[in-house]
Amino acid sequence: MLSLLHHPNLVNLVGYCADGDQRLLVYEYMALGSLAEHLLDTTPEQLPLSWHIRMKIAHGTAKGLEYLHEKANPPVIYRDLKSPNILLDEEYNPKLSDFGLAKLGPVGGKTHISTRVMGTYGYCAPEYIRTGQLTVKTDVYSFGVFLLELITGRRAVDSSRPPSEQVLVNWVKPMLRDRKRYSELADPLLRGEYPERDLGQAVGVAAMCLQEEASVRPYMSDAVVALGFLAEVPAGYKYKSGPIPQMKQVEDPSSTSSSKQDKSAYDRQKAVAEAIEWGSLRQKQKAQSPEKKAYSQGIIPSRSL
């Protein structure tokens, strides 16, 4: 299947080897390994992933799923979205890997496909667990869990935590209903270094993806639009590759005016980007069904520009 799919956010299949009953798939080299190594399996010596890198990873992952769901023909349901399956190149660009559980989506007027082989516990949509019916909205739910991992720095399931906190979605649900509690969701390792409004939008996207009713979850194209602006990196930042993830601000101590100009330019770009994205979404909403319009409006709140 992977040999027929080509996208910047899918890992490239280079080739394969076969010797008797032994099979080996050869993928492109991903310099920084899996996201789990930088987000969940960190050591005290590691610098945590910055907010901007986390949103860049979320946006790229969403684009990979958008391609599978809405551009591949027939559509592909990935079915095993989780941090260990997201690989990173030297610039923290994410790529989906491990398509062992992927399934071709419903075609010919069918609404779903049926299977009892589940993905990873903690990421599976509730209707999939109950009925075994698989749709692209199953992946959307998994993406909501994945986005919560990026925001909180917690595992989808962590038996080392108190019982009420072991399943990430269950722990988060009460806070999703109260915007004033969103800051409690932020990974403590971020030390408050994130835009508060951007945190609110990221949590809002996750909440929409985690809707119990599959039909009101957004399409991945909507999530891509919503996360696109959050993935923009401010001027003066750079990525440093290597085993320890980090992103430091490049400052010239002898030129504070240059730093102020960079910030001013970034603020202007930010305002323009917001206006463009909001206008684009409004145009899409006019052409959408009432049902899809309802949840699309929930993803991106109106803003004063």
Rank of each mutant, 00 (worst) to 15 (best):
D89E: 13
Y67I: 03
V107R: 15
W51D: 07
L101V: 05
D89C: 14
Y78I: 02
D80E: 08
R79S: 05
P84I: 02
A72P: 08
L96Q: 03
A72K: 14
A58Q: 00
G64V: 01
F99H: 12
G109C: 04
K63C: 14
K103I: 06
I86L: 15
G109M: 07
Y67N: 05
R54K: 13
Y67W: 06
H52I: 06
L101T: 04
P94R: 01
G100M: 02
V117T: 14
V76G: 08
G108I: 08
G60Y: 04
K56R: 14
P94T: 01
K82Q: 05
H59K: 11
K82H: 02
E70P: 04
F99A: 12
E70D: 14
Y78M: 03
G119E: 04
I86Q: 04
F99T: 07
G108C: 08
M55H: 00
V107F: 07
Y121I: 07
K63G: 13
I77C: 04
I113M: 08
L104W: 15
V76C: 08
S114L: 10
D89M: 15
Y92L: 13
R116F: 15
A62M: 09
I57F: 07
L65D: 03
K56F: 07
G60L: 11
V107E: 15
P106C: 11
I113R: 09
L96F: 02
G122M: 11
I113K: 10
V76Y: 11
T115H: 05
G60M: 09
P94S: 03
L96R: 03
P75S: 15
T61M: 10
L96E: 02
K71D: 14
A72F: 10
L96M: 05
A62H: 05
L101K: 05
N93G: 09
P75A: 15
M55A: 00
G100P: 00
G64I: 01
H69G: 09
G109V: 00
Y67F: 14
D80V: 10
G105E: 09
G119A: 08
W51F: 11
G119H: 07
I77L: 06
H112P: 06
L101M: 14
R79G: 04
K110G: 05
I86F: 10
L104A: 13
L88K: 07
L101E: 02
E90R: 15
F99P: 05
G100T: 01
